[in-house]
């Protein structure tokens, strides 16, 4: 894997290269000295969250390019046997994005072969590789992924969205609709404006084939609570909806 990451580091303007899994766990990285393992792990988490949301609207995404005032991040999906990992390039403003996109495509293909042909678990295989390469500059393995449920398999896509907000969810009666609104409002305190999307997803999971009714309120709240990472916040959310 070192060689694959190094090939991207050789691109003009590239300052760091990361590989992480869908949960945001850093599987490997190379980069200039300032991009240490701790920083890359933090960044991987934030990028994975962004990609969770991207997946909601565009399941078939292949690349995501974020342009900043002083640089760029280019993300490329790496479809391996059992999961979608992500290859990320961090660069300064001089990066030629078109050129980098081609290089990323090539690197992603090699990484895919490495993941599929390596150990039985992709993260385990990369972990071994990373550990073996630890003596080299900047490749590492980090702590386990957090417990956030992935939204990747939501089935929602940009083209399927047709109505406004929670009206996409069918409800048995007005009280059930009002309860969903309360759920979104309470959840928004912890996860922000994406709360409505989370509520819709949760309703689809809890009652996939019928209108939502208050009888399913408890499993819905439990499902939604799983979106909140902090235990105290999670408890406060559940309490607020138990009233």
């Amino acid at each position: 894997m070192d060689a694959i990451l190094q090939s991207l580091m050789d691109l003009s303007g590239v300052t760091a290269v990361l590989v992480f899994d869908p949960g945001g766990q850093l599987l490997g990285h190379r980069g200039h000295a300032v991009y240490d393992e701790g920083l890359c792990a933090q960044v991987s988490g934030a990028l994975a969250k962004a990609l969770d949301a991207v997946q909601l609207q565009q399941e078939d995404w292949e690349t995501v390019t974020a342009q900043y005032a002083d640089g760029k991040i280019v993300l490329r999906r790496v479809l391996a046997t059992d999961r979608t990992n992500v290859l990320a390039v961090v660069a300064d403003g001089t990066l030629n994005v078109s050129f980098a996109t081609v290089a990323l495509r090539v690197a992603a293909g090699k990484l895919k072969r490495l993941l599929e042909g390596g150990a039985s678990s992709s993260s385990a295989g990369l972990g071994s590789s990373a550990a073996a390469a630890r003596s080299g500059p900047g490749t590492s393995q980090t702590s386990p992924a957090d417990s956030r449920p992935t939204l990747a398999a939501s089935g929602l896509s940009w083209s399927k969205i047709s109505n406004v907000g929670l009206s996409r969810v069918s409800v048995a009666d007005p009280a059930s609709g009002a309860f969903l609104g309360r759920c979104a409002k309470e959840l928004a305190q912890y996860v922000g404006p994406i709360a409505k999307v989370y509520v819709e997803e949760a309703v689809r999971r809890v009652v996939p084939d019928a209108p939502f009714a208050m009888a399913q309120a408890r499993p819905l709240v439990e499902d939604l609570a799983a979106q909140i990472e902090d235990a105290d916040d999670r408890a406060a959310f559940q309490k607020s909806l138990a009233k």
Binding site: A16, Y35, L39, Q42, V43, A46, L47, A50, A66, Y68, A69, D70, G71, K72, I73, V90
Partner: peptide, 8 residues
């Protein structure tokens, strides 16, 4: 992510 990386 950009803030952590100093990208502005």
């Amino acid at each position: 992510a950009g803030e952590e990386l100093g990208l502005g």
